[in-house]
Design a binder for these strands. Structure first.
Lengths: 347, 347
DNA sequence: ATAAAAAATGCAATCGATTGCACAAATCTA
DNA sequence: TAGATTTGTGCAATCGATTGCATTTTTTAT
């Protein structure tokens, strides 16, 4: 209505057209100059850069995203942001993505399938250039993820992967980690080793259980179903399971828990029963939570390179986005066994 | 070139124009129908919804963002994503933002001023509708944040705020928390209480120190500069400081640390010297890190409602974005004192 | 049946950056 | 110096959704 009013609203962002008008040239030239297109002479480029600077010009990424059909955004979906493992992965993704000029949009499923589906659809609508995801415990259908394959949008699974979808995946060597730490318990002289297993719809927990079973088998120990409890691996689950184990007629003398949380609560339960750890009872966990190192006794566990996992996930997805990499890999990152007090029976 | 080829590339996303063509109506009508604009008849609206559904239409948010000059995105910048406190805040922000239909883009400054500035500029270029930030330890200039005030882009500080910038802020009652926990130490009969202070350019750590000093003053205890160490509050800093304290001719018999990390490392140092905690030496921290509850002895500390803080931050920024709220508040969330073993001298 | 009012739809410009192609200017060649 | 190159700029369409205004269609009133 009153075009001159624009002068009053200093907050209005300058565009390439404003720069063009200022210099009495065309917007195309400005656009090209700002991209350092060699077709524009050095002289004009400098002139334009100067004006852009003084006007406080910042390219409107919504406009260029639209034109380029590229959002420069990577989506990441995790069950819960404030879980150390996931936060570390996110941290790794962010680091690599930021350096490459990408934004990271984040969402959490709270381990609920419905929320996950809703999030993923929202990411699709927002035209993320790629999605990095660790699926929710609850998730059992995968149509929302198959869309990515159909539409050829880069997709990377980490940690909790979907076997039936062919795409890039990054996992930790759960099997090997579980195998080695179970072997470690055996080496320490523990005889009856129980296992706290996680939801068996997730391959990670399947593999941990398999590793446990394999170690037993390798050592000629018969598998005993009563020594395996499957639950959701919460603090409470750990305590309940410990109660079950210690109530058995022939209780175990060691426990391999599928995460550190349950290892901790089980440990506290056992200790409060007056049983000495590690002398009378050994406990090991999985994941190397920050607390595992500092509790007493400190908990032996398997460290997963979470930050590295995030970096690798970002690299993989950037490769797909920018180099149109077509082949899919499954990266298996080595896990690291960290031996601490909770299982150190033999010095 | 070969328009019919489009049929081969099923991956091409349908637009409102495709829907319009299909129904031989105009794109405007489709657009309005999809927004449930009452100007479009019920009949056509249903027809359009049906076709949109079968074509798998998803609005291109880049296009509507451009047109509406709104990104539907909230930026959040934290020093480090995988720190429990920050991860919890992010989690809270995400929850509220997602429900309101906003995306959350995340970045970490690694406590580096330069990276923070770079991130903030990138968020500006990406036209976030608002920014939630906890500044880096290193940050000492604030031009990159003042831009938001100038351009009238909603900005919310949390935890680590900038006093000189007038905007919405959310902090925990650091002063009160520090005061109460110092008072607690005094009540437990500790006589010489040291303080491990954090970087004094951050108000949070200033306030914690002030609370400590106030508690001493209230109880007629003279402030002793040699009992205060200021550092960056890392694990190593905590150990070094503990070493310093215990080497004093007249060492303290209790320590109020500005975070749990240093409380832990100091505690380990002191304990390893054969000093009994809490009998001979009391230690309290700040932040209620997950490990504080499970270490031995467990650490008394001040809990900050991180998740709530994130929710409130999101609510504040959404209010500014959507209701153009002009007035600024500073929300002071109550901190909670959590008493545990490390300071429980008197039963 | 007809004018007037109301309802439904379409046209065309817009948001800001990008880019193929055309055109103009500068430089070079003979 | 005319003609051929090379170099530098501009025009106008495009990306997909939105919206003020105009136009068409339907409904209501007379």
């Amino acid at each position: 209505m009153f075009p001159h009013c624009l002068k009053m609203h200093k907050k209005i962002e300058p565009t390439i057209h404003d720069i063009a008008r200022e210099l009495k040239i065309s917007a195309s030239t400005v656009s090209r100059a700002l991209q350092n297109n060699p077709r524009i002479s050095q002289k004009t480029r400098e002139k334009i850069a100067l004006i852009a600077e003084t006007m406080g010009y910042r390219p409107n990424s919504m406009a260029s995203n639209l034109r380029n059909k590229k959002s420069n955004t990577i989506g990441i979906v995790v069950p819960l942001i404030n879980r150390y493992f996931f936060a570390s992965v996110i941290s790794g993704v962010e680091e690599v993505a930021f350096k490459a000029g990408y934004n990271v949009v984040i969402s959490q499923s709270n381990d609920l399938a419905d929320k996950e589906i809703s999030i993923v659809h929202s990411m699709l609508a927002n035209r993320v250039d790629g999605l990095i995801i660790s699926i929710a415990m609850q998730t059992t259908t995968f149509d929302h993820l198959k869309i990515f394959r159909k539409k050829n949008i880069p997709l990377v699974f980490f940690d909790r992967v979907v076997p039936e979808i062919e795409t890039n995946k990054i996992v930790v060597d759960d099997f090997m980690g579980a195998f080695r730490i179970t072997q470690h318990l055996i080496d320490q002289g523990y005889q009856r080793i129980g296992h706290m297993a996680g939801p068996q719809n997730l391959t990670t927990y399947q593999d941990r259980k398999k590793g446990y079973m394999e170690a037993l088998a390798k050592n000629g120990v018969a598998y005993d179903d009563s020594l395996v409890v499957t639950n959701s691996l919460t603090l409470e689950d750990g305590e309940k399971a410990a109660q079950y184990f210690m109530g058995l007629p022939d209780p175990p003398d060691a426990l391999f828990c599928s995460n550190d949380t349950t290892a901790l609560s089980a440990m506290i339960y056992v200790r409060d029963k007056g049983i000495r750890i590690p002398e009378d009872f050994g406990i090991v966990g999985f994941s190397n939570e920050p607390f595992s190192r500092v509790v007493t006794p400190s908990i032996s566990t398997i460290a997963q390179p979470a930050f590295l996992m995030g970096q690798k996930a970002a690299e993989l997805i950037l490769n797909q986005i920018e180099h149109k990499e077509k082949t899919f890999k499954t990266l298996v990152l080595p896990s690291e066994m960290i031996l601490r007090e909770s299982s150190a029976r033999r010095k």
